[in-house]
Design a protein around this nucleic acid. Structure first.
Length: 337
DNA sequence: ACTGATGATTTTTA
DNA sequence: TAAAAATCATCAGT
């Protein structure tokens, strides 16, 4: 409303000015050339207002007539220019969209899990790598992991089909809108920039939908992981010999049961476990021993005897080397009490 | 099913 | 930052 009145006022002012310089011999011609379009504009506006009351066919015909009007291109460019200067300069400024950190995080995770990576090959390779990393001992685990892999593949398949569906819908919709806008841009001042902007808006909407999909996929994978790969859920006790080695070290260093990094490495090697597992074991052992020394007394005595026997064994063997005539050179088992 | 043992993880502390 | 402490989740014997 306000715009309209202002525009009319502006036009009136223009007319007043041109009427003011009467001395100019060109003024008559000017007035004619200005007056003629003004009248045309009025006609055109009236025609436009009338369109709503007419049938579609008629409207179409009129539209065509308008399109063919000699003033149309000029008016159109003016409209475009005005629009460019008002709307776009106001709203089209904050165009930069930084890559959403959240969606990047999700993408990275899905890639790491082998869900969104390259086709089958990458996925199975990742799964195999995960299986190899998780399965410390080669004998067990392959059955559980095949289950895990199957479930992961299922998630992967759902994810991809959904993603494809969204992508297809997005491009379909974008094409539709673009065609519509292009069609309309012949009669309405729509710049390519605006079409671009619209496409960007559509893409943003669809990508937010995609993010939801990614998020739920991530959740599913996490649940699957915690169900199958969380070490606590498939804990295996160390074998007897390993715990024996660890206990031997622990009780023979009872005054300072803190193996150095090198000692841990050696113990890990001896027991067929990792260094961090050795650290865990000593952490658990220290706190549990301290909490209830009485409970561990028997075990402590046992290992004290064992180490003493071993020492004796070693010295015996040493002395045996000195006097090879000594009988009963048998296994350490014969010394156990 | 119940329960103590045990390996792993998380939180607290020095 | 490593160790202590608390806690979790499963194992394994009954």
């Amino acid at each position: 409303m306000d715009d309209q009145t202002r525009m009319l006022a502006g036009l009136g002012g223009l007319g007043g000015l041109s009427q003011a310089d009467v001395g100019d011999p060109d003024s008559v011609r000017k007035q004619q050339s200005l007056g003629q379009p003004q009248q045309d504009i009025g006609d055109i506006l009236q025609q436009i207002m009338a369109i709503t009351d007419e049938s579609l066919d008629e409207a179409q015909a009129r539209k065509h007539a308008l399109n063919c009007h000699r003033m149309k291109p000029a008016l159109f460019s003016v409209l475009c220019e005005i629009k460019e200067k008002t709307v776009l300069s106001i709203r089209g400024v904050q165009e930069e969209d930084p890559p959403d950190p959240q969606i990047m995080r999700l993408d990275n995770m899905l890639l790491a899990e082998g869900v969104s990576g390259p086709e089958k090959g990458g996925g199975s390779a990742a799964a195999a790598a995960a299986a190899a990393a998780a399965g410390g001992s080669p004998n067990d685990g392959s059955i559980e992991h095949s289950d895990y892999r199957a479930k992961l593949a299922q998630i992967r398949q759902i994810y991809h089909s959904e993603l494809e569906k969204y992508e297809q819908a997005c491009s379909e919709f974008t094409n539709h809108v673009m065609n519509l806008l292009r069609e309309q841009s012949r009669t309405r001042p729509i710049s390519p920039k605006e079409i671009e902007r619209m496409v960007a808006i559509i893409h943003r909407k669809f990508s937010s939908i995609q993010m939801q999909l990614k998020q739920s996929t991530c959740e599913a994978v996490m649940i699957l992981r915690s169900r199958f790969l969380d070490a606590r859920r498939k804990r295996r006790n160390f074998n007897k010999q390993a715990t024996e080695v660890l206990n031997e070290y622990f009780y023979s260093h009872l005054s300072n049961p803190y193996p150095s990094e090198e000692a841990k490495e050696e113990l890990a090697k001896k027991c067929g476990i990792t260094v961090s597992q050795v650290s865990n074991w000593f952490g658990n052992k220290r706190i549990r021993y301290k909490k209830n020394i009485g409970k561990f007394q028997e075990e402590a005595n046992l290992y004290a005897v064992k180490t003493a026997v071993d020492a004796a064994n070693v010295s015996a063997q040493a002395s045996q080397a000195n006097s090879p005539a000594t009988p009963n050179s048998g296994s350490s088992g014969s010394y156990t009490l």
